[in-house]
Design a protein around this nucleic acid. Sequence first.
DNA 1: TCAAAAGTGTTTAGGATACACCCATGA
DNA 2: TCATGGGTGTATCCTAAACACTTTTGA
Lengths: 225, 225
Amino acid sequence: MDRTYKDIQQITLAVDCIIFGFNDNRLEVLLVHRGFEPEKDRWSLMGGFVGNHENLDDAAHRVLKDLSGLEDVYMEQVRTFGKANRDPYERVVSTTYSALILKEKYNKELIEEYRAEWFPIDELPDLIFDHKDMVESAIRRLQRRVRTFPIVFNLLPEKFTLPQLQKLYEGIFQEEMDKRNFRKKLATMDFLVKLNEKDMSESKKGAFLYRFDEKKYNKTKNFTI
Amino acid sequence: MDRTYKDIQQITLAVDCIIFGFNDNRLEVLLVHRGFEPEKDRWSLMGGFVGNHENLDDAAHRVLKDLSGLEDVYMEQVRTFGKANRDPYERVVSTTYSALILKEKYNKELIEEYRAEWFPIDELPDLIFDHKDMVESAIRRLQRRVRTFPIVFNLLPEKFTLPQLQKLYEGIFQEEMDKRNFRKKLATMDFLVKLNEKDMSESKKGAFLYRFDEKKYNKTKNFTI
DNA sequence: TCAAAAGTGTTTAGGATACACCCATGA
DNA sequence: TCATGGGTGTATCCTAAACACTTTTGA
């Protein structure tokens, strides 16, 4: 391997987080409002630089914790954006991570400090640099992943209803699904445990609550939507 | 975004290439033999550092060209490996790219210079650092991608036979496929053009040659294996 | 003439889709 | 009593999978 480049290399490595949440039956992304120059008063992803002795994955978790106060969050690396001029001010290569968080759990004060706000994925504001591409590639990856892995439960509380779950998938795929076919498929998955409780907050009749049983899932691991 | 880390950041950014070739009806990876310390005489992926003003994608193409002499090669970013101690000698974060090349076209002298050799993907030698993980994640990605995109034709000459094509898919999936079902599916794809020539080199009867018609593919873009 | 690879159809099973009405309840 | 959202079953289509024999020809 040629050492020439390394000795004079001046590239900064960053991570950017695409933070997804399911709020009011819509899939949303948490964006921060830049309070400093350059690009002051525009919106961007939450990001940060990677520490010299910090694992890349850990940097993403740290950045997320700084903003949300959350630890143990479900995160996946998406891809690395490395165009030489993607940031017009300095050479920064950024690896993106998508995070699935629960609106109820994050730290509201921290989020206000960063002037962060939720945006539905089909109503994104103008974003700095290539952050719009980052969000879009994270959405596409999420759409692929949720078909074969039961990761959507990271976006729902411990107990949730089937109408909620369907709305969540619809929000991710950005398309409506047939209620009966959807439930028929779920009925074949025994790791979705029906509880003897109803959620009465969204309808008069009330909807039964369910729970995702990870142990049962791990036994079979067959899942597709 | 916090600038603290950036000012003292000392991380080197590299690219590593997983170079796939289809040789003797097997899917193989091109590896280089390290002629220098550390880790002298072990095998590794072809890699290199990213230039200060070089796009990340361009760095991968440059590294591939240095080894193979090839330009205009089909390459995809796979993922970025960023564990702090993945390279025990220095802090290097590496983004991997997979390349699909044609054995007939590459520059043999260059490859000999690097003491590179082809290895079937199920008979990999011991590799330095996390290069084995890199190869495996590239294979998994390739397996997913070839199901929905007609990228395998980058691994075949302009004209190829259906038995060849099937062997290639079998090599990628590492499993045998039913000849009749395979051909039935291909028959529905009109961008696979049958020629009036036969390849007589692999059988007495000879097998008809086909050509991938990119223009026809772009009209419909429906493809799944 | 025979060995070796190329080529060719049909049947079956399972999953995906389309589709409409009753139920429970609070207001 | 009615408006609102929750819950349920069947028929059809299509794709995936299983499966065996004939053809060609050089050695």
